[in-house]
């Protein structure tokens, strides 16, 4: 008998929750392929370690961008391999609930469900990421209260107001932590004349990146390729430089939160002042982001207990209570 699965198919990471077991897989959404034969060489952590370090015949790619599938065949193969790794075979075809950005188009929606079905799922249902995040953050969304959740992923940032089990107001932008990495790469190239890879940019973000001034800030030594000489070169980056480099992306995220607050009915708005907003997703871990949102909205911001796992846990809860929570799935609301 197949155990049903919940999948957080993120731009950055893919997490799988198995019914009755919990989270059974948490890997980067990366696949390495042989460019000539098209064979899959590695997935997950192994493929991630290859990014930017592959010989000509290998390509390590992220098949999702902005929360949407950019390469259908590669995504299908990645999902198939991930399902195989958690024990799904030709004979055990589970029901699958997949978390997707709420701003996904009909075509993108169909691409995800088709990819999951062709990869071995008996049935594939979709759930909006902010809704799953609110369930996974253990917010009391069953009550007539204003629950606000900000989910900042690799490619999308979504803010939702949820009450009585449904989304009341929603604001989504296709900007996420990968855009922050890109902004760092561009800044270092422009201002210091060196090229760095996306993994190095991510490491800089984690080490000294911040959305607002924080105590105990440090400088970072970064190495890359000098664009003029073509030789390896090291520069020192200051935290205020990185803050300046990523300010445009951070501002877009903060402005989407402000727009969502403006859409909320006044009865729920007063709840936010008392209960605050909850940050989930890897992008929410950026230092100073909670403080920056709090400063610009005048609403308290709290970090969820398990920000990286909240979305898949929420979808996992839907799998555990499939019949009772059917109306949570996209296209199932009555």
């Amino acid at each position: 008998m197949a155990r049903d699965l919940a999948i957080d198919l993120g731009t950055a990471n893919t997490l799988v929750y198995m019914q009755g077991r919990g989270i059974v897989l948490n890997e980067p959404s990366v696949i390495a392929l042989n460019r000539q034969t098209g064979e899959v060489l590695a997935t997950g952590h192994e493929a991630w370690s290859m990014i930017g370090r592959t010989p000509g015949y290998i390509v390590a790619v992220r098949p999702l961008r902005g929360g949407a599938i950019t390469d259908f065949d590669v995504t299908e193969r990645m999902i198939r391999l991930l399902l195989q790794r958690v024990g799904v075979s030709r004979f055990t075809r589970p029901k699958v609930v997949i978390c997707v950005p709420s701003a996904i188009t009909e075509v993108e929606r169909r691409a995800v469900t088709d990819a999951a079905r062709r990869a071995g799922a008996a049935d594939a249902q979709l759930i909006e990421q902010p809704m799953a995040a609110a369930i996974g953050a253990n917010l009391p969304i069953d009550e007539p209260l204003g629950n606000m959740v900000i989910d900042i992923g690799g490619g999308t940032s979504e803010t939702a107001v949820i009450s009585l089990g449904g989304i009341v107001a929603l604001e989504a932008v296709r900007v996420g932590s990968f855009d922050i990495d890109n902004a760092i790469q561009n800044y270092v190239r422009r201002e210091h004349g060196i090229a760095i890879g996306e993994r190095t940019a991510e490491e800089i973000k984690v080490a000294i990146g911040s959305a607002a001034e924080t105590p105990d800030e440090m400088e970072a030594e970064v190495s890359g390729r000098d664009l003029m000489a073509g030789l390896p070169k090291t520069v020192i980056l200051k935290p205020e430089e990185i803050r300046y480099a990523i300010d445009d992306v951070v501002s877009q995220i903060v402005q989407s939160v402000v727009r969502c607050l403006a859409k909320a009915p006044p009865e729920l708005s007063q709840d936010f002042l008392l209960r605050g907003m909850y940050l989930v997703g890897g992008g929410g871990l950026l230092r100073g982001l909670a403080e920056r949102i709090e400063r610009e909205t005048q609403v308290p911001v709290r970090m969820s207990n398990m920000p990286l796992e909240a979305v898949v846990l929420g979808a996992g809860h839907c799998i555990e209570n499939y019949n009772a929570l059917k109306r949570m799935f996209m296209g199932q609301r009555r």
Partner: peptide, 18 residues
Amino acid sequence: EHLDALSPESRQHMFDRV
């Protein structure tokens, strides 16, 4: 039934397991 399934109490079991 939908709201009961969404209550924090109904989710506690899953969080305990995780």
